[in-house]
């Protein structure tokens, strides 16, 4: 079931406007951006830069501690304090971005490719294949996502990539449902029937009309899944099924900080706040893409 997001119609309207009508120049677009959305893009951009070029943001080594600097409170020299081995927490968060974000990218890409592929096939072909695929999707949806990813982790073993694959496979069902409903919706529209009527073959119509028109909502849900993938990967990291220590993965950072909860509050607080900010930003950006199914 696809429900429409009525709360955020105010944000959708300008987005649709420039998509359909004249193209806006980039500076104008930026000025028209709601401040919350601009902030979200900024958060994502910074996180992305952390992942690409961490050394630009910090001069500390994320893996080697400095003697005598253990468990320092946040101050001017250590923005977010240091951990029990004297490692700068800010540096560890910056260098950890690549693990958390790559994991989320891999997860979303996997879910997007497999899920959308299945959904497009189900939406375009004959009844029997459609039924079979959608039954499979029903089954995948009936297993709680965390249990599904834990089962896959038992199968594949622990590690960053395996955790990403496990998280990605749990989103296949969601992508497949969405892609199918979009394809079915677009297929019924007049211009697609017209395209068939004017001699378009099945694949050409699919490529020229159906796919581009289904893309917006698929992209919106991909952004949404990106946020939830960051969350799920940090959960798996926290449980100890992701990257092994001393990798500065965000979930693992929180898990390690847990042992110093009574003395060093910053060790758990800071990485958690970063995860919340990135996930919030991803969700906000996803809403701006248009309608987001519940």
């Amino acid at each position: 079931m696809t429900t429409f997001d009525t709360v955020h119609d105010d944000i959708i309207a300008p987005g649709r406007g420039h998509g359909a009508g004249r193209r806006l120049s980039l500076p104008l677009l930026i000025r028209r951006l709601p401040p919350g959305l601009a902030l979200s893009w900024l958060v994502l951009a910074i996180a992305f830069l952390w992942a690409v070029a961490p050394s630009l943001f910090t001069s500390y080594n994320p893996l080697e501690g400095v003697g005598g600097e253990q468990l320092r409170r946040p101050d001017a020299s250590h923005l977010l304090g240091t951990d029990a081995l004297g490692r700068d927490l800010y540096a560890r968060i910056v260098y950890g971005a690549v693990h958390s974000l790559t994991g989320a990218f891999v997860a979303v890409a996997l879910g997007l490719v497999i899920g959308t592929g299945l959904g497009v096939v189900a939406g375009s072909v004959r009844r029997r294949v459609d039924d079979a695929i959608m039954r499979l999707v029903d089954v995948l949806l009936s297993i709680p996502p965390l249990l599904l990813s834990l089962s896959i982790i038992i199968l594949l073993g622990f590690g960053t990539v395996n955790a990403a694959i496990a998280v990605g496979l749990t989103s296949v069902a969601g992508f497949a449902r969405l892609a199918r409903s979009e394809v079915v919706r677009v297929r019924r529209s007049d211009y697609v029937e017209a395209a068939f009527g004017s001699g378009g073959t099945f694949t050409s119509v699919l490529r020229r009309h159906v796919l581009p028109n289904s893309l917006t909502s698929v992209l919106a849900i991909a952004a949404l899944h990106f946020g939830s993938a960051v969350l799920q990967i940090s959960t798996l990291g926290f449980l100890g099924y992701g990257a092994p220590p001393p990798t500065p993965e965000w979930g693992l950072l929180i898990a390690e900080g847990r042992n110093y909860i009574s003395t060093a509050w910053w060790l758990t607080t800071a990485p958690g706040v970063i995860v919340v900010l990135v996930v919030l930003a991803a969700n906000r950006v996803s809403q701006s893409f248009g309608k987001v199914p519940a």
């Binding site: 946020g227 959960t235 926290f238 449980l239 758990t268 919340v276 969700n283």
Partner: peptide, 10 residues
């Protein structure tokens, strides 16, 4: 957007 495990720790 809040990780459940982090919320518990906080």
């Amino acid at each position: 957007s809040i990780p459940t495990f982090w919320l518990g720790i906080m």
